[in-house]
């Protein structure tokens, strides 16, 4: 008798593509599993879930999910998803990409999609650096961090992503770490139900790069650090939720925004209905 090893989520994974390319201690496996669990619980037909990404380690995630998946160019997942969602509004379109992809090269698209209240769920896996290219710093690298391109320490202020998203008008904003998979999954499920722009940030270790440069012995040590140094505060003043571990600052997690305003698709439908009447 032979025993076949099957991943419990096998039906949602492209088994033939495994093992994945991610490093030991990386948080992306947890993110993938959380997404799948959330999609399963979302009440939306699985075939209507579409997963889109830009470029980077996180951007490889859609390729392992057994859904309709699109791996686009660096920074352009959001505008690609915008076109797809408008063309095919029955789809539940999720963009999942890294901090470098979404906020450095793709930052402009993020703020415009949030401003439009575009009907997308954007998940940013924030590992505070460019992992795939060898750990260079970016707009989310905390002040004073070491990286392969800040050998003397990062002198730039980093983005406070929930504050940014909320200021522009996102309908849903949350932040978790990969050490909070239950809360993160619940957040994703909720965000999939949002009409409009939903944003979930999830902090994740990058053991060979950000972790190594900043004194974490391995991925688990980095995850432990995020767990121990974070508090959940749904009512936090978003101005204060920037991430600055080198100066002893606690990491604030939670579900910060959940409000209703008309989404792009809703407003567009209304305008188009009026225009078609004019045509008749």
């Amino acid at each position: 008798m032979s025993i076949e090893e099957v991943h419990p989520k096998s039906q949602f994974l492209r088994d033939e593509r495994l093992p994945h390319i991610w490093c030991p201690g990386c948080g992306l496996g947890i993110v993938l599993q959380s997404y799948i669990n959330a999609a399963e619980k979302s009440g939306i037909r699985l075939e209507n879930h579409v997963l889109i990404s830009g470029i980077g380690c996180t951007a490889r995630l859609p390729g392992y999910a057994n859904l309709d998946t699109y791996h686009t160019t660096h920074g352009r997942g959001i505008p690609f998803a915008t076109g797809m969602k408008i063309a095919n509004p029955d789809l539940k379109v999720t963009v999942i990409s890294g901090d470098g992809d979404l906020f450095n090269i793709g930052g402009n698209h993020f703020i415009h999609a949030a401003r439009r209240n575009m009907d997308l769920l954007v998940v940013c896996v924030n590992n505070f650096n460019y992992g795939m290219t060898g750990g260079q710093h970016g707009s989310t690298t905390p002040p004073s961090s070491l990286s392969s391109s800040t050998p003397y320490g990062n002198i730039e202020q980093s983005f406070n992503l929930p504050y940014l998203a909320a200021a522009i008008g996102a309908s849903y904003v949350a932040r978790w770490t990969v050490m909070h998979p239950r809360q993160f999954t619940k957040s994703l499920s909720k965000a999939m139900d949002i009409r409009g722009f939903a944003f979930v940030e999830v902090l994740s270790p990058c053991p060979p790069n950000f972790g190594k440069f900043n004194g974490f012995s391995d991925g688990f040590a980095e995850m432990e650090f995020y767990r121990k140094n974070s508090v959940v505060d749904n009512e936090a003043k978003l101005e204060d939720v920037s991430i600055d571990p080198h100066h002893g600052k606690q990491i604030i997690l939670g579900e910060f925004v959940n409000k209703r305003r008309p989404s792009f698709i809703e407003l567009e439908r209304e305008v188009n209905r009026r225009a078609m009447v004019v045509e008749k």
Partner: peptide
């Protein structure tokens, strides 16, 4: 963004 959107829409 424009060209990314039209490629997305066409795939849609």
């Amino acid at each position: 963004a424009s060209i990314a959107a039209i490629i997305g829409a066409s795939n849609g």
